[in-house]
């Protein structure tokens, strides 16, 4: 098993690559409905705006792979942002701030992991509780207001700047995707994640330290929330207790959609990227084509339903094939 990827070879070509076709159709359709859709500036903006959500989705992948659920992703993001903005206001050295934010996110993930494994509380309830607690802490830290003083210039440049018309944050997200893809497919930890997600009992009997894997998954999730917080703070230039909490469902939609491409039935990084692009381009196309404001909400809802349904169908099919 060393270095071998876990494959599902029973999927048809359509199941593996059909989503690429859908993506192409979406691009063609909206290029026809709006002359501003198919432009370098528009695609550049889309990618930059998806960098934050992509980081959250990467974190969400670890959680869903081990068959848990984390409702605190958005709250961790918000808490890390508020913490970072507060530290900036207090004059903490610029280089330390993103580090502290990421460490704080990881610590929140660790807390989630400990609550789920050591206390035996369902991750759904445990992470929701942690999330609500973090929401209160964020409100207390921010005083209910907006923190926007002394946000490090480096963070702003990294979050908003571009090279070759592509944001620095986008290149960074690509790097993170490559790293996560490698971890999931070529490391023992990645195999253990899938094993625990497939069956905790079997993984335990196989000698895998299930609780340790779960805790690390939650920490990874928190880690990526911290990174997302750094990017979002740089992009917006401010933080408050109301920011970022709405990104949870879109992030999970994208992770569920990943099961519909490349390795059907299995959460995978290339599928996640494809899902992210599909959602982003679809939503952008709807808005830029002049559809009424409700159209965007309807699209998000439909995507969420479809992603969960497709995920369930393909997961079951993959399990039967094994």
């Amino acid at each position: 098993m060393n270095g071998r990827k876990i494959r599902n070879g029973n999927s048809s070509f359509l199941e593996k690559y059909g989503m690429i076709g859908i993506l192409i159709l979406i691009v063609m359709f909206f290029s026809f409905t709006s002359k501003n859709f198919f432009s370098v500036r528009n695609f550049s903006n889309i990618l930059i705006s998806q960098a934050v959500m992509g980081c959250l989705a990467l974190g969400g992948m670890f959680i869903l792979i081990v068959n848990e659920f984390d409702l605190s992703l958005g709250y961790i993001l918000c808490f890390s942002m508020v913490l970072g903005a507060l530290l900036a206001e207090k004059g903490v050295p610029s280089l330390l701030i993103p580090v502290i934010m990421v460490v704080a996110g990881s610590a929140c993930g660790l807390l989630n992991g400990l609550i789920t494994t050591r206390l035996g509380i369902s991750s759904f309830i445990g992470t929701l509780s942690v999330g609500l607690m973090l929401s209160g802490i964020s409100q207390a830290l921010s005083g209910g207001g907006i923190l926007n003083t002394n946000i490090p210039a480096g963070m702003i440049t990294f979050a908003r700047g571009k090279i070759f018309q592509v944001g620095y944050c986008v290149w960074f997200l690509v790097l993170l995707c490559v790293i996560v893809w490698y971890i999931l497919n070529f490391t023992r930890f990645g195999r253990h994640l899938y094993a625990v997600g497939s069956s905790k009992r079997t993984a335990l009997f196989a000698g895998i330290k299930v609780q340790k894997v779960q805790i690390l998954a939650f920490m990874a999730s928190g880690f990526f929330c911290g990174i997302a917080a750094v990017l979002l703070l740089g992009q917006l230039g401010a933080a408050s207790s109301a920011y970022g909490t709405s990104l949870l469902l879109p992030a999970y939609s994208v992770v569920f959609l990943s099961k519909a491409a490349f390795i059907p039935g299995k959460i995978n990084v290339p599928g996640m990227i494809l899902g992210m692009l599909l959602c982003a381009l679809g939503e952008n196309g709807i808005e830029i084509s002049g559809v009424s404001t409700w159209g965007s909400y309807a699209f998000q809802g439909i995507i969420l339903i479809l992603s969960i349904w497709i995920s369930a169908v393909l997961t079951e099919r993959a399990a039967r094939a094994r």
Partner: peptide, 12 residues
Amino acid sequence: GTPDEQNRSIMN
């Protein structure tokens, strides 16, 4: 209703 969406809307 959220600054990240408002920011994205301006960019759109």
